[in-house]
């Protein structure tokens, strides 16, 4: 048989793709999004805590934050997911039964928190010290000054980096398949891989890849767009909300579904 044709059919067998498509749409895509978005929210909440601890004057907050960041940023994602997902499984079994999801999300959140914490920290530190001084001079406590004045400004500056982290999470969520998922829990990659393993044809996996691209490529363009807008400023609209009115942990700017 023509080797080129074989190669083509290995990746672009429409029939295999069509077969896998419904499950990808109804099972894989929602699961991938649940994993990535939940981990992004949890990771951002933890990340803010880490960032604030990381710039604290107390070394008892600073050092643990440092170690946490180094560990979860330094370990391969696969190792963290296995260590947490398998290592804590007996504990998880007692709390929520034989469901690998919570531990998978926890592991992804821990990884994300390390990166997001560093992003937030740099954002907070990029806000001029005089802003803190001005807020304190008005009578705001340190915490309120951070919350109302410093963090809202820092967040804006790190939005592009934060969206990049979301992209990384979407991709890393595929690693949760290590933990052994029920059929209904499979995310995009696992479904593609299952079809590929059953048929010996890679087309379903390629389809999964296309799904990932459909999620991540638009996000990279969102990053670029935000970046441009931050660089060139935006026209004053008068009535836009002044601070994002952040509840302290979480909600880092419009990522709610």
């Amino acid at each position: 048989m023509d080797p080129l044709r074989t190669l083509w059919e290995t990746f672009f067998d429409w029939e295999s793709m069509r077969e896998a498509l419904p499950e990808m749409l109804t099972v894989g895509l929602p699961n991938t999004l649940i994993l990535a978005v939940t981990a992004a929210l949890l990771g951002s909440a933890l990340g803010i805590v880490l960032a604030v601890a990381g710039i604290s004057r107390t070394r008892w907050l600073r050092w643990p934050a440092r170690v946490w960041t180094d560990v979860f940023r330094g370990l391969p994602a696969a190792a963290t997911i296995l260590l947490i997902g398998v290592g804590l499984a007996p504990l998880g079994m007692q709390v929520w039964g034989p469901n690998p999801y919570p531990l998978g999300i926890l592991a992804l959140s821990l990884i994300a928190s390390a990166y997001i914490g560093e992003i937030f920290r740099s954002g907070i530190q990029s806000v001029e010290a005089t802003q803190l001084e001005a807020a304190r001079a008005l009578g705001f406590t340190w915490g309120e000054a951070m919350r109302r004045v410093i963090i809202p400004q820092g967040i804006r500056r790190i939005l592009p980096a934060w969206v990049n982290q979301l992209i990384a999470l979407i991709k890393d969520s595929s690693l949760v398949y290590f933990l052994g998922l029920l059929a209904s829990q499979r995310e995009l990659f696992r479904i593609g891989q299952d079809y590929a393993a059953n048929t010996g044809n890679q087309s379903a996996l390629l389809l999964a890849g296309l799904f990932y691209l459909a999620l991540t490529v638009p996000l990279t363009h969102v990053v670029n767009w935000i970046d441009r807008r931050l660089r060139h400023g935006r026209p004053a609209t008068g009535d836009d909300p002044d601070d994002l009115d952040l509840a302290l942990p979480g909600a880092a700017g419009g990522n709610q579904r």
């Binding site: 005089t130 802003q131 001005a134 001079a137 009578g139 400004q153 601070d243």
Partner: peptide
């Protein structure tokens, strides 16, 4: 500090607010 107002060389208005 609520009893004492302060004005700075660099104004230090909060740029993200009206």
């Amino acid at each position: 500090r609520q009893r004492i107002g302060m004005v700075f060389q660099q104004f230090n208005l909060f740029p993200h607010m009206s």
